[in-house]
């Protein structure tokens, strides 16, 4: 069963019995640890299927006495989910595309092309992380309402949400540290083969960086999916709302248990997406190209 395992713990190690046991123990340990991450939030959300009195009672019932999954139908009927999912997906895709093309490209330039002055830009990008977001909120919002120089009002469009994704210092740092790991030799070789500056990024770097791209998509996904602060400021028109805004709208007018059962609709899609995408983190870097 461990025959072809390579890596830190490889099939060589797993030949001996104590090592095999230790490895299985490690797996069991991680399965146990995983419960710490999964059970409490899952229990909280599923608690919303209890009737409202049981949901708010103290001490809470660990194993629910009542179970009303039909609350999901109530929420489903009251919110236009196909529209909400579509909107959320548009925001997600747009943000991901901007993140990869803006931050990825910039990180590549800073890491590999290193034109004169790019270091200053990099430090200026790093410096933005020092200022907490709240203080510049109003100034950012004013720029959204009146795009500098062009005087375009971007309110009630998805553009500010997309573009804000492009000014993500964290992503640039992550991308850069990955690109730093790609051997320069590879790029030199491609240069000799006559690959241009843009071709280098799309043909050589991107295929090598599948794991970091998938990672950035996953990180963006959880950020965008649950975000409501900027969407609330920017998307004043109801037709544009994402799923979290719609669920928050239930607040104050709906019983709390139904509000929380509505969260199920916000939680399931990203989890499915995660399970689907995480496989691809494994691919990418261990390609023959790098070793040679």
């Amino acid at each position: 069963m461990f025959k072809n395992k390579t890596g830190l713990i490889n099939s060589q190690d797993l030949k001996t019995k104590p090592m095999k046991i230790a490895y299985i123990a490690l797996t069991v340990l991680f399965l146990l640890i995983s419960l710490i991450f999964v059970l409490p939030p899952l229990w909280t959300v599923l608690s919303s299927f209890k009737d409202v009195k049981e949901f708010i009672q103290m001490p809470p019932t660990i194993i629910p006495r009542s179970f009303h999954p039909e609350k999901l139908i109530t929420v489903w009927n009251d919110l236009n989910f196909s529209k909400l999912y579509l909107n959320t997906l548009v925001i997600l895709v747009g943000t991901v595309v901007v993140k990869i093309s803006f931050c990825g490209l910039a990180a590549y330039v800073i890491s590999k092309m290193k034109p004169k002055g790019s270091k200053v830009i990099f430090w200026m990008i790093i410096a933005t992380m020092m200022i907490p977001g709240q203080v510049k909120l109003v100034a950012v919002y004013k720029n959204i309402l009146d795009f500098p120089l062009l005087h375009i009002n971007m309110i009630n469009t998805y553009w500010p949400l997309f573009l804000m994704g492009g000014a993500d210092a964290f992503m640039i740092v992550v991308y850069k540290s990955f690109f730093d790991g790609i051997p320069d030799l590879l790029i030199e070789a491609a240069k000799i083969d006559g690959v241009g500056s843009f071709g280098m990024f799309s043909k050589i770097i991107l295929p090598l960086s599948k794991s970091v791209i998938i990672t950035s998509i996953l990180l963006t996904m959880s950020g965008v999916w649950g975000d409501f602060f900027w969407p609330r400021m920017i998307l004043k028109e109801k037709e544009l709302w994402n799923i979290m805004l719609a669920i928050l709208e239930l607040k104050d007018t709906y019983p709390i248990d139904i509000q929380f059962s509505g969260l199920v609709f916000a939680i399931v899609p990203p989890i499915i997406l995660f399970l689907f995408l995480q496989k691809h983190i494994m691919q990418g870097f261990t390609m023959s190209g790098i070793k040679g």
Partner: peptide, 12 residues
């Protein structure tokens, strides 16, 4: 509380 000041300061 979270959004009033930003809205007000931006004329929104």
């Amino acid at each position: 509380v979270e959004s009033f000041f930003t809205d007000a300061a931006s004329g929104q």
